[in-house]
């Protein structure tokens, strides 16, 4: 995913000199293709995330589309007020990019576990969350964001995620993307990297064998209203995310249909239990411990 991200960014920068990449002294072996080709559009802000996000907002206010890249919680929680006040309130085209969403950095410990970031970002009224499920969706998110610069949060996995789309799909905020048709009127709905996990459940478990598979790569406060009409088409929608259930994607979906009570019971949530907080281990081990299993 991160390679697809930097590849798309390089493509865009080659035709737009008002695209900038700011990193918080991170991105070794990822950002070099951009930094070497566009040194005037690349800034290493150092280990100083508050200034990094504030200066990104300042640059964006002067016509730049700024991508701010770091890992896990560093470009989000560490500079949350700068995102809230400077970027989101002023509605500036800054894309916060976090690599290692969920428990991708599982062995690095709680500081590096991004399992509350959706909760933070979906509190921002103007923020569009972009959580691609595979490298193709990553490219689709980047193309959408470049064509529609706005306050945005791009949550990436790490590297090596399998592709589920044969080509770059066309995506829109709030619109579900079908990955697989099912044999019943039920679907899994993922956002972000757990797409691969959800696909495994359909392929290997009894419980989800007949389910369809959808992703929702672009969502946020502004796209809640159109969700009820989508839920109505299904007898069950199980959301899947590598984020705590509290304030996560599934909770967002519940809020989206709360004015239509009969839809509430159609939504099931597969999300991480807080018991995973503080545990360390490989991503797949922690996801399982956190409850991201087919049963």
């Amino acid at each position: 995913m991160r390679n697809a991200f930097i590849d798309e960014l390089v493509n865009q920068a080659s035709v737009n000199d008002r695209v900038a990449l700011i990193v918080g002294d991170l991105g070794y072996s990822v950002v070099e293709p951009f930094a070497e080709r566009f040194p005037e559009q690349f800034i290493n802000a150092g280990v100083a995330e508050q200034n990094m996000m504030g200066l990104a907002a300042g640059m964006a206010s002067e016509g730049y589309h700024v991508f701010v890249y770091s890992i896990a919680n560093f470009p989000t929680f560490r500079c949350a007020e700068q995102i809230r006040n400077d970027v989101d309130y002023h509605c500036l085209p800054v894309t916060v990019v976090s690599v290692g969403g969920g428990l991708a950095y599982g062995s690095l410990g709680y500081s590096h576990h991004a399992v509350q970031d959706f909760g933070l970002m979906r509190l921002m009224p103007n923020m569009l969350i972009a959580a691609p499920g595979d490298p193709m969706e990553t490219r689709a998110c980047m193309r959408y964001l470049m064509a529609n610069p706005q306050p945005s949060y791009l949550r990436l996995g790490k590297a090596g995620e399998p592709c589920f789309h044969s080509a770059v799909p066309t995506i829109e905020p709030g619109k579900w993307l079908q990955v697989k048709a099912g044999a019943c009127n039920k679907t899994l709905l993922t956002t972000g990297a757990p797409l691969a996990l959800a696909n495994q459940w359909i392929e290997k478990s009894e419980q989800y064998r007949d389910y369809a598979l959808h992703t929702l790569p672009l969502w946020g406060m502004a796209t809640k209203e159109i969700q009820a009409a989508k839920i109505k088409n299904w007898s069950e929608v199980t959301t899947v995310e590598d984020h705590l259930k509290d304030a996560g994607f599934g909770s967002w979906m519940l809020e989206a249909v709360m004015d239509t009570p009969e839809l509430l019971t159609r939504i099931k949530i597969k999300a991480l239990s807080p018991k995973v907080c503080g545990m360390v281990g490989r991503q797949e081990v922690l996801n399982e411990l956190g409850g991201l299993t087919a049963v």
Binding site: G54, S61, N85, D86, H90
Partner: peptide
Amino acid sequence: SHKVPGVEFSTGALGHGLPFGVGKALVAKK
């Protein structure tokens, strides 16, 4: 408030103005 003509940037929480100004100054240089 930036909604007022002539005001560049809304503040209220302290420590935000200088990083924002740094971003603007960097663009002017570029």
